[in-house]
Design a binder for these strands. Structure first.
Length: 423
RNA sequence: GGAGAAAUGGCAGAGUGGUCGAAUGCACUAGUCUUGAAAACUAGCGAGGGUCACACCUCCGGGGGUUCGAAUCCCUCUUUCUCCGCCA
């Protein structure tokens, strides 16, 4: 959510910047400013009425105490009208505040100045590429074929248990998953992130805090009876640890990492490009989350990008980094870098990580603040990134590491797996 | 699942209808003293709205009600604790 003050101060600049998202904010912003004026005017009136009431109440108290009951009763009558008025004004104020909130929720974050204009993933800007694309055996297979051949992932069995998009990992497949989780967590802890274990279900307030609610309800599984949501990413529970908190400036940078399963309903989109592990309803992910001083958040973002580069280098996977264009940028992000691994067997790039700075957009919803040097509360910046999403890393490893003699396990993972090859 | 108790500022903890945004202690910040630190002393020290700045308004777990007036009384929800039951 954008800060109201920011809209008051820079409506034009915000409108211009949001054009990069192909989002026309003109009428929304005007409506917001108008409602804000109304809200403040109502507040002022209400305050004056309440002040008058408070004064009278005090006088009545004094009169009763000094035994002047009659005079007190005269004053009492005067308060009746004030009471009615403050009730009316209070209702008006609440309505205005709610409407204002609804409108504010509809405005996406303002893109960073470096975000390129554009509407689809075609317009994303490749800023870095590294790693050798291997030459595969002539009969190279995509990962879903490999999974079947070596009996390490069973998609049909998952259909029986839950449905499409819920794979069952078997034997070395399961062990490789566990190895990847441990490896990623270890890398993150080594880089200074504190490991956390968090709930996999969250309440509505948490969904609102990080921006999945109110409008992306359909993407999360909802447990109606208890009104809880299955998390679509660890970002939600981890970032919400800081909801309604005022952190100490000295505590920056705050760096957390967590492994969680992620649940996504992902309505729609079926076909060849979502085969196998490419798109799932349940998958595993290790996430990194940072809370930063505003002046350091972009340095932190660069640091996160470098950290993920290091992991991919160690895994020896060919990858590239993209700066997302305005049209592809998530609703709450100001700047996002996507990481993609090249899948030789599928002959396409697979997104395996997304690293974003939300600036104070989430913090404003979360009421996540810190005290500045003058003792004033300021909104912090939040960032997060996947390090990494398991299924597509797994797909990338299976496909890029296939040889005549089966699938080789990347060297760094061997100590975690306890085996060197599959097949 | 059943019975009882409770929820107040960063923490602990007073406050049972008016002068209470709230005593006191601890913690924290600044100053005095000190070579420095500690101790002692002095001052400050919740959040949000509003204002150029004041004023002023709101908030004592959430929501609703009674009253001229609510941290205090009533209803309701949530959470925590104790006891019993069940259980990985």
């Amino acid at each position: 959510m954008l800060k109201l003050q920011a809209i008051r101060d820079g409506k034009e600049a915000i409108t211009t910047a949001l054009k990069k998202r192909n989002f026309d904010a003109t009428s929304l912003l005007d409506a917001i400013l108008e409602l804000d004026d109304k809200r403040r005017a109502t507040q002022t009136k209400l305050d004056a009425t309440l002040a008058e009431s408070n004064k009278l109440s005090k006088e009545i108290g004094m009169l009763f105490k000094t035994g002047k009951a009659q005079e007190a009763n005269v004053l009492k009558e005067k308060t009746v009208a004030l009471k009615e008025e403050s009730k009316t004004l209070g209702d008006e104020l609440n309505t205005a505040a709610e409407e204002l909130q609804t409108l504010l929720y509809q405005i996406p974050n303002v893109p960073h100045e470096t975000v390129p204009a554009g509407s689809t993933d075609e317009d994303n800007e490749e800023i870095f590429k590294e790693g050798e694309i291997p030459t595969l055996v002539s009969n190279a297979l995509p990962h879903w074929e490999l999974a079947k051949k070596h009996d390490i992932i069973d998609f049909e069995l998952g259909v029986k248990i839950a449905g499409a998009g819920f794979p069952v990992y078997k034997g070395k497949g399961a062990r490789l998953q566990r190895a990847l989780i441990s490896y990623f967590l270890d890398k993150n802890v080594e880089a200074g992130y504190t490991e956390m274990q968090v709930p996999h279900l969250v309440n509505e307030a948490s969904g609102l805090g990080t921006g999945q609610l109110p409008d992306k309800e359909g993407q999360m599984y909802h447990v109606g009876e208890d009104d809880l949501y299955l998390i679509p990413t660890a970002e939600v529970p981890v970032t919400n640890l800081f909801r309604d908190e005022i952190v100490n400036e000295k505590d920056f940078p705050i760096c957390y990492t967590a492994y969680t399963p992620c649940f996504r309903r992902e309505a729609g989109s079926y076909g060849a490009h979502v085969r196998g592990l490419n798109r799932l309803h349940q998958f595993d992910k290790v996430e990194i989350v940072r809370v930063e001083h505003p002046k350091n958040s972009y340095t932190a973002l660069d640091g996160m990008v470098e950290h993920i580069k290091n992991i991919l280098r160690e895994l020896k996977l060919p990858y590239r980094v993209l700066r997302l264009c305005g049209g592809d940028l998530g609703f709450t992000a100001a700047l996002t870098f996507d990481f993609e691994v090249f899948s030789t067997a599928q002959d396409r790039w697979l997104e395996i990580s997304s690293v974003s700075n939300f600036e104070n957009y989430q913090a404003n919803r979360l009421k996540l603040r810190y005290k500045d040097e003058n003792g004033k509360s300021q909104l912090a910046h939040t960032l997060n990134g996947s390090s990494l999403a398991l299924p597509r890393v797994l797909a990338g490893i299976l496909e890029n590491y296939q040889t005549e003699d089966g699938i080789q396990i990347p060297e760094v993972l061997v100590p975690y797996c306890g085996f060197e090859t599959i097949g």
